Simulated scan of single mutants.
Amino acid sequence: MFEKMGQTLADTGRYEVHIIGFPGTSQKTYPGIALHPSRPFQRISLERIRMPFRIFRMLLTLSPDVIIATTHELLLATVAVRLFRKARVIYDVQENYFRNILYLPTFPLLLRPLLALWVRAWERLLTLFVSRVIVSEQGYVDELRFIRRKAVVIQNKVKRSAIRPRVAQSRGGKRLLFSGTLAESTGVFTAIHMANELHEHDPSVHLTIIGYCAHANALRQIQEAIQGRDYITLIGGDKLVSHDAIMEAIAEADFGLIAYPPNPSTRNTIPTKLFEYLGARLPILLINHPPWMEFCAPYSAALVFDPSHIDPAEMLHRMRNTEFYTRNPGEEVLWESEAGRLVATVDDAVPG
């Protein structure tokens, strides 16, 4: 929010941007942006329930012209502000929450359908009162038919200024990277399995796992899976990791791993780190998901693997002998190609 949406809107010189959210790891400031960190809270806690009420009161005080809500949990609070202020609301759909709740093991199996239907019902109702709905993929428009008339596709691409110069590559594929959200659903255990297989054939192979894990049980499983394996480094885990740190790790890696297991919740999405790896021209070890394979193919950016059948000797040979990035990615992977659409969307929402 800060690096892309916030800075893009502030750079126009027409908007004073206020960002309310979970306290981050960075102490960055930016002209035209005011940060309002919330109190830290656990994923399941009373403070999380109180937070929409706190944000509602803060919004009444700030009295903004446009509010961008980035989670379904804040939709009611932001829409309610319209009863007291002239604010317009934009809903930034970051995930298909219905499919996430229904198909991921975050909640008990028997509760998932009820919770998923409850969230979807609230979204259907409250989006009647928003001006626009921002989605990061056309796939979300196809999945969420009730937003079609209000949807604007703005892909979550990598900002040019965030990309770090790549350090000298080993060409041996020794430094593997798994970055972003750490969970079974994002493929972290597939990445660990890949590192184990490759390390057995080449002891110089090393895996860095960097990102935040929101679920204590998943973090414990990750820690157990890498225990005693000094060739795997975990950065973050139970602590948030700055985007700068992730981009630095990308610059230092030889290969980035994208290993989401097949799941309806991610079927029609493009992972943010795919844009980050392409923007940094980092070769990718890519799970065999056809849309992502097609996306990477024009650049010769990726080696595709089947997680059920990893041949480490053959994979290492391909990693060391393939010529990557025979065509360099351009503006199509950069945030700058989307920024104008964001500004136009907010401009249209400003009350007359």
Rank of each mutant, 00 (worst) to 15 (best):
Y97T: 15
W118C: 06
L74Y: 13
H289Q: 14
H215R: 10
V130P: 03
G237W: 02
D142I: 02
E3T: 15
A259S: 14
T25N: 06
I90V: 15
W335L: 00
R88D: 12
L240C: 01
L234G: 05
G228A: 09
N268K: 11
G187M: 08
A80L: 15
T233S: 13
Y325R: 03
N100C: 13
D254L: 11
M51Q: 13
E336I: 09
I284F: 02
Y103P: 05
R164P: 01
R267D: 04
I209P: 04
L59N: 03
L76S: 08
N328I: 09
P291K: 05
D238S: 13
Y231V: 02
P291V: 00
A344V: 07
Y30E: 04
G32W: 11
R220L: 12
N321L: 00
V93E: 08
S63M: 09
P329S: 06
I44Y: 01
T106A: 08
P283G: 01
I33Y: 10
E47T: 02
I250H: 01
W118M: 07
P64G: 09
T208R: 11
V304R: 08
F295L: 15
E294Q: 12
L274Y: 04
P108T: 11
P113K: 05
V304Y: 05
T272V: 09
T345E: 06
R99P: 03
F22Y: 15
I310V: 14
Y231G: 02
F56R: 05
S63Y: 03
R85M: 04
P262H: 10
G279W: 06
G173S: 11
P262E: 13
T345F: 12
A195L: 11
P52E: 07
Q221R: 14
H317C: 00
F305W: 03
S242V: 03
I270D: 01
P290S: 06
I222S: 04
Y260R: 10
P23H: 05
H317N: 06
S131Y: 10
G228K: 00
R120K: 15
R39F: 13
T326Q: 11
R220M: 07
Y299F: 12
G352N: 10
G256W: 04
S136H: 12
G256D: 03
S38I: 02
S136Q: 11
Y91I: 01
A302Y: 04
V304P: 04
T269D: 10
L219A: 12
A80C: 13
V153D: 02
Y140M: 11
N268L: 13
R54H: 06
L62N: 02
R48S: 09
Y97R: 15
F255H: 09
G256R: 01
T127Y: 00
N156C: 07
P165Q: 06
T266V: 15
V304G: 05
R164H: 14
T269G: 04
L114G: 09
M58Q: 14
E314I: 00
R148S: 10
A313M: 06
D202C: 10
T25K: 03
Y97E: 12
V333Y: 11
G13T: 08
T106P: 00
P283M: 00
Q7L: 06
P52F: 08
E252H: 08
A313F: 01
L104M: 13
